[in-house]
């Protein structure tokens, strides 16, 4: 059966809805501060990227975060959390789906996801140090953090957190994808 543009659009909306729902089932990792929470909302975005191309994955990330802002607002009233989540998610899924596209094997998928994890960790480390942490302290008017303290937080908290988060999602997605694959033929575009 031929599936057109409308199907792709709606499938991506459904995946965004799932991503938003999965955001609610978040949990903190043992040993990390409470504001660093892990959820599996990147999984539907990855699936969209793998099935319909990287652009669709980015759309899932965008809709998920926009919905989250429209429905839940954010801590400071300005969507810093949602923007950070969007950038992290995009940095994770785009390299993964590009590497996977070449030969579509489980090995290339795992390679892509690990690359995505590394890229996300690096990008979020730099962004947290340069933009996000200063933005938070500025909006919340918390005491200014020294650059040494921020560097410590990035190196000890945020970077290891992103690596663990990326690897957990990698394991989950590879396991999930090998199981979904036979069924997905029918639903890919």
């Amino acid at each position: 059966m031929h599936k057109g543009k409308v199907y792709r659009m709606i499938a991506v909306s459904m995946l965004s809805g799932i991503a938003y729902v999965l955001m609610a089932f978040d949990f903190p990792l043992p040993g990390f501060p409470k504001y660093l929470q892990i959820d599996f909302s990147e999984v539907p975005a990855l699936l969209a990227a793998v099935l319909f191309g990287p652009g669709s994955g980015i759309v899932v990330e965008a809709i998920k975060n926009l919905l989250h802002y429209c429905l839940q607002n954010s801590l400071t009233g300005v969507p810093i959390d949602q923007m950070a989540n969007f950038i992290a998610g995009t940095a994770f899924i785009v390299p993964a789906s590009f590497l996977f596209k070449k030969n579509r094997t489980t090995k290339s998928l795992s390679m892509g996801l690990v690359t995505g994890t590394i890229l996300m960790t690096l990008l979020m480390g730099i962004l947290n140090y340069a933009v996000i942490l200063p933005a938070y302290t500025w909006f919340l008017h918390a005491p200014q953090m020294s650059s040494q303290a921020m560097l410590n937080l990035v190196l000890v908290g945020i970077a290891p957190f992103n690596i663990i988060k990326g690897l957990l999602i990698t394991i989950l997605f590879v396991l999930l994808y090998t199981r979904l694959r036979p069924m997905l033929k029918r639903y890919s575009y």
Binding site: V12, S13, M14, S16, G17, Y20, V59, L66
Partner: peptide, 9 residues
């Protein structure tokens, strides 16, 4: 797409 996602949440 946002409305469809909202509808199906």
């Amino acid at each position: 797409m946002m409305s469809i996602a909202l509808r199906f949440i």
